[in-house]
């Protein structure tokens, strides 16, 4: 979530979902894995919904100029936990992460931002550790490509 309000809304939704589904928890995985799974699913749903709204907003703005008041531009995201001297670089990284596919994005964030092990990520995403390793690798390759393009475009 690249927005504080969205992140807080989602946290509440996850909390409520956990509260309501606690009896469905079968203890096949650890409680934290289960909560992570709910969080990942909710986040992806939220992003999909947001993207649908974005597309709809774009379509309506094509036909009715006056409805395009809602600004769907991303805006810059500053993660509050990033060290000050790395803020600019992190902002670029999060913009690039946003361009990854859902699975690559999830695996990369859980590994590099949440600092979970590949085994834990595999349990959360219901995939094998090997698949997670390859997802992270592919995510890195894609990010390198995107950042390379950006480097050339900016003429740094």
């Amino acid at each position: 979530m690249q927005n504080k309000e969205d992140a807080e809304d989602l946290t509440q939704e996850v909390f409520i979902e956990v509260f309501h589904s606690l009896e469905k928890f079968k203890q096949e995985s650890s409680l934290s894995t289960w909560i992570y799974r709910i969080t990942v699913n909710k986040s992806l749903d939220f992003l999909r919904k947001k993207n649908r709204k974005k597309r709809f907003g774009f379509m309506t703005s094509l036909f009715h100029k006056e409805t395009s008041e809602v600004n769907f531009d991303k805006g810059h995201f500053d993660h509050p936990g990033i060290l000050l001297e790395k803020k600019e670089n992190a902002r670029i990284l999060f913009e690039a992460i946003d361009l990854l596919s859902e699975n690559q994005k999830t695996a990369f964030i859980l590994f590099h931002v949440e600092e979970l092990s590949q085994k834990e990520i595999a349990a959360i995403m219901n995939l094998s550790p090997k698949a997670i390793e390859s997802l992270i690798q592919r995510a890195k390759t894609t990010l390198r490509e995107k950042l390379g393009d950006l480097y050339k475009k900016r003429g740094i």
Binding site: K4, A7, E8, T11, H79, P80, G81, I82, L83, K86, N89, A90, I92, L93, A96, H112, V113, K140, L143, R144, L147, G148, Y151, K152, I156
Partner: peptide, 20 residues
Amino acid sequence: QEKWIDEILESTKGMHKAEP
């Protein structure tokens, strides 16, 4: 360019969790 990309990719190192 490679150095710049590495710096970007490592920018999340040492970050803290966001406080709600």
